[in-house]
């Protein structure tokens, strides 16, 4: 019986990453092509400079490639793992510059227009609900949460940069993420 060779592009993210770790032919190209838009998109959002973003995106993809064998599905999805690496590389870059080159609020374009067709088709309801939940946060909480999640800033750092008491910074972070969790875990239609 004749078999049709399935495209590498059709492999699940986890299988693709495992193939990359095993040095299987073609996996490197498929891996980079599959994730480069996400990785570069986050990098350029974080540093606001295309040239620096390319360096960061390259480094993130290479780091993931080299450590592909350490990926554990229970630590999150492959895109989440990869974007966490990207964020960490970007944070290292920004610490050297000692600056936030982009407006934190701009990172989370909360308008529905910002949602591309992939969001609707793949992330779908989850992404939409999260965007709505983020949009529903008070400005101060949203800003604190972005500084913490995207830039890895501690409550102490946010307190210093925003010139607010430490307790206020902690409260904003806690309240923000707790509200998002509540929005994401409540039953469909409960809103």
């Amino acid at each position: 019986m004749a078999h049709h060779r399935p495209a590498v592009e059709a492999l699940a993210d986890e299988v693709l990453l495992s193939g990359l770790a095993l040095d299987e032919p073609g996996m490197d190209l498929a891996f980079v092509q599959r994730f480069q838009r996400r990785v570069f998109g986050l990098a350029v959002s974080l540093v606001g400079d295309a040239a620096a973003a390319e360096d960061i995106a390259q480094e993130a993809l290479l780091r993931a490639w080299r450590h592909a064998s350490t990926y554990d599905p229970r630590r999150g999805s492959v895109p989440t793992w990869l974007l966490t690496i990207t964020r960490n590389v970007a944070i290292d870059f920004l610490r050297l510059r000692r600056a936030l080159p982009t407006d934190p609020e701009a990172l989370l374009d909360i308008s529905d227009q910002a949602m591309g067709p992939d969001d609707a088709a793949v992330a779908g309801d989850m992404a939409h609900r999260l965007r709505l939940a983020v949009a529903g946060l008070p400005f101060d909480q949203r800003r604190a949460l972005v500084l913490a999640t995207f830039y890895g800033q501690t409550a102490e750092a946010i307190s210093a940069s925003e010139q607010i008491p430490l307790g206020t910074a902690k409260t904003r972070i806690r309240a923000g993420i707790q509200k998002l969790r509540a929005a994401m875990t409540e039953p469909e239609g409960a809103r």
Partner: peptide
């Protein structure tokens, strides 16, 4: 939240 960043 990281997944909400725009692709480019």
């Amino acid at each position: 939240l990281l997944l909400l960043a725009e692709e480019a």
